[in-house]
Write a protein that binds this DNA or RNA. Sequence first.
DNA 1: TCAAAAGTGTTCAAAATACACCCATGT
DNA 2: ACATGGGTGTATTTTGAACACTTTTGA
Lengths: 245, 245
Amino acid sequence: MAQASEHIINPNVSVDNVILGFADNELKVLLIERERVEEVPDDFLALPGNLIYEDETLDQAAERVLYELTGLKNIFLEQFHSFGDPNRIRKKQDLDWLKAIRAHPEARVITVAYYSLIKADNYNPTPSAFAQKAFWVPITDVGQLAFDHNDIFYRALEHLKDKLYKYPIGFELLPEKFTLAQLQRLYEIILQTKLDKRNFRRKILKTKFVVPLNEKQRGVAHKPARLYHFDKERFKSTEHRYVSY
Amino acid sequence: MAQASEHIINPNVSVDNVILGFADNELKVLLIERERVEEVPDDFLALPGNLIYEDETLDQAAERVLYELTGLKNIFLEQFHSFGDPNRIRKKQDLDWLKAIRAHPEARVITVAYYSLIKADNYNPTPSAFAQKAFWVPITDVGQLAFDHNDIFYRALEHLKDKLYKYPIGFELLPEKFTLAQLQRLYEIILQTKLDKRNFRRKILKTKFVVPLNEKQRGVAHKPARLYHFDKERFKSTEHRYVSY
DNA sequence: TCAAAAGTGTTCAAAATACACCCATGT
DNA sequence: ACATGGGTGTATTTTGAACACTTTTGA
């Protein structure tokens, strides 16, 4: 049920998108069931991706795939690596699926991988035109994926970790108003480590771009936490220095 | 004068290589004159790159291009970004050249960019099969390049800078035996900053993978500097910790 | 009144920074 | 003998790490 398109498709280049969200104190990834094809059993979930159009940039292709899948625009989205092993598609199930769905199923496809971070605010994916169903899967529960998508997914998480040491991208995953405990939990999950509460708070607040609001959590069965938000303007105007040598 | 090849060429995907070397206390990039074509004036230098073969990985393609150009193998080589603007080739001179040289000059080409670091030891490039001439150009003297190669080059330097804060890749650019002053100079160039000599030395020597040799410079008109080398094994066995939160 | 998570300060150790003079060599 | 770059130590400030109790709320 491929959709009509006036665009010419490039049979050799695709984008794949590792879309991450944070909810229920967990990091989750958006996976799709591939389009169902008669006679082709398919129990692999996949990262949302597709061939690019000849008249769009790589970034535009990634945005488009994200939009088609989630209905969201203006989302944090960044290229992190390209994957081009000629054998990246070698599972029989993948080959059968491609034969049924692609104009050139045998074509060698290089994929440019992006990751994107979605705020819990915007959490509900709109099932897309080309995917049957989309699911948020906790990153600890990701099983065998289609194609080489496990490699891509793993590398996205590594990349995210590297970025987080230098850039405050964690905020892209949180709602506009968040508690410091949420932020800390997010850092702990991405960095795969335990952080000291007092030291973490001191460090975050010293930055001056995480600003306290005069607002608290409501309806929690414990002391309600103060809410904070991330001030992009203050962040931009901050001097960002590296570790020195 | 394209060389004979048993390989099928993928007309849509290329690799481009930003090859950096360090000599005369300067960082230099290896640029080529494109193959000369009758009637097509061409005064742009270019990054060495080429279309990939259908049966090689991206890394293999990058290694191959490097080998064809320099005769070197087992060189530090790393993918850093892919470039795919449909208009990345828009200068008339580039179009004319492609028309003269490519089987599908109009094809849209996505390029996967690599950077590679070459030791001063191995410094002399062997002019390649597909390039007329190769030059080491000081990075401060790079003029307008072919295609979008200025973008690619700029981004490679940024990437190198980011890497250097975390990984000791600078050693890939130095000879086996080097002085701490050379190392410091290299850091200063890449990071675009001035470093304090005493603090730099203390910090480098504390790592334990830069080891002093019982050997000194010879024939210099000043106190000869001790030589050091980078111990890969010690580096690998070191705990590499991040800045914490 | 209890359970659950929020919030808060101090001490110690390690790392970063700033800074100036003597040394060994070739010409 | 002089010009050139090599090599070294200390004091101060800043940052990181470890650690335990009181507070506020809903159930």
